[in-house]
């Protein structure tokens, strides 16, 4: 299997008393070239799980393997795009994309590679600009180009379009799909938007919370581009929505109970 999660758990806190388990027993198998979304209410640990794949977050128990290799640190085989573009403001757009390449290739090579990916995200014209001159959507496209420039095996995306307006998000969805088709990357995409997950992915993994766990795994069998008013899409949305509503109510109820206890 290409990317395999086996009995993965995440716990915070070092003593048994104050230990808090975010999730446990996460098992997922992801095939190469798949576009997989992880969907869930806030607090279910979906971003933590993604950070573990990136190697930014330790794995408390279990293993995550990429092509049979255990993941325990960041590596160039995994590129990450965050919700905040996280570009370096002191570098130009092109230099930002060259940032991960500097160690491994000559400047010329790095430049032409950066230019290639900037073209892919339609930002060739802006390669000499600084990032503060770019809109949020453009910045996020630079971040995508930067992650792709490393030629990772997996592209990890942590709510990458969460901070953008609807219009921009729509455009970037289209761009991402065409990039995915061109590059044939495996994409692991974390989001809390049901529509976004269904519109983009081959597979939608739904996580529940308290304890964090996988509660459903949908394969989306509809040709792209998918329209919002497509019957199949609507019915799938409904199913996921019902699942998530239960989870969100659970969280709300717990929070309200906590409140009741603490104020009594």
């Amino acid at each position: 299997m290409f990317l395999r999660f086996e009995k993965v758990a995440k716990r915070f806190g070092d003593t048994p008393e104050n230990q808090f388990e975010v999730f446990s027993d996460i098992d997922i198998d992801i095939e190469e070239n798949q576009f997989v979304s992880i969907l869930g209410p806030s607090g279910c640990g979906k971003s933590t799980l993604l950070s573990m794949v990136a190697g930014l977050e330790g794995i408390s128990s279990g293993t995550i393997q990429l092509e049979g290799e255990d993941i325990d640190r960041p590596g160039p085989d995994r590129g990450m795009v965050f919700q905040q573009p996280s570009l370096f403001p002191w570098l130009t757009v092109r230099e930002n994309v060259m940032f991960p390449l500097k160690k491994n290739m000559s400047k010329k090579e790095a430049q032409s590679r950066a230019d290639h990916f900037l073209k892919m995200v339609h930002l060739s014209k802006f390669r000499s600009n600084y990032t503060y001159e770019l809109s949020g959507g453009m910045q996020q496209r630079v971040a995508i180009a930067r992650a792709l420039a490393m030629d990772p095996k997996v592209l990890l995306m942590d709510e990458p379009f969460g901070a953008l307006d609807e219009q921009t998000r729509h455009i970037l969805h289209k761009e991402l799909l065409s990039i995915w088709e061109d590059t044939q990357k495996t994409i692991l995409f974390v989001t809390h938007s049901i529509q976004e997950a269904i519109k983009l992915s081959d597979r939608v993994i739904v996580m529940g919370t308290r304890p964090g766990q996988i509660i459903a795994d949908f394969h989306v069998d509809a040709p792209r581009p998918r329209e919002r008013d497509d019957e199949y899409v609507i019915s799938l949305e409904k199913q996921v929505m019902e699942l998530l509503e239960k989870e969100i109510n659970k969280v709300l109820k717990e929070e309200l109970d906590d409140e009741a206890v603490s104020t009594s």
């Binding site: 590596g75 995994r78 965050f82 905040q84 996280s86 991960p100 160690k103 490393m150």
Partner: peptide, 20 residues
């Protein structure tokens, strides 16, 4: 956030200090 981003691009430790 910038440090995390740099880490995912294989820039940590001393080179992170100088480059980020």
């Amino acid at each position: 956030q910038l440090l995390r981003a740099a880490k995912t691009m294989g820039v940590g430790g001393v080179s992170q200090f100088f480059r980020v």
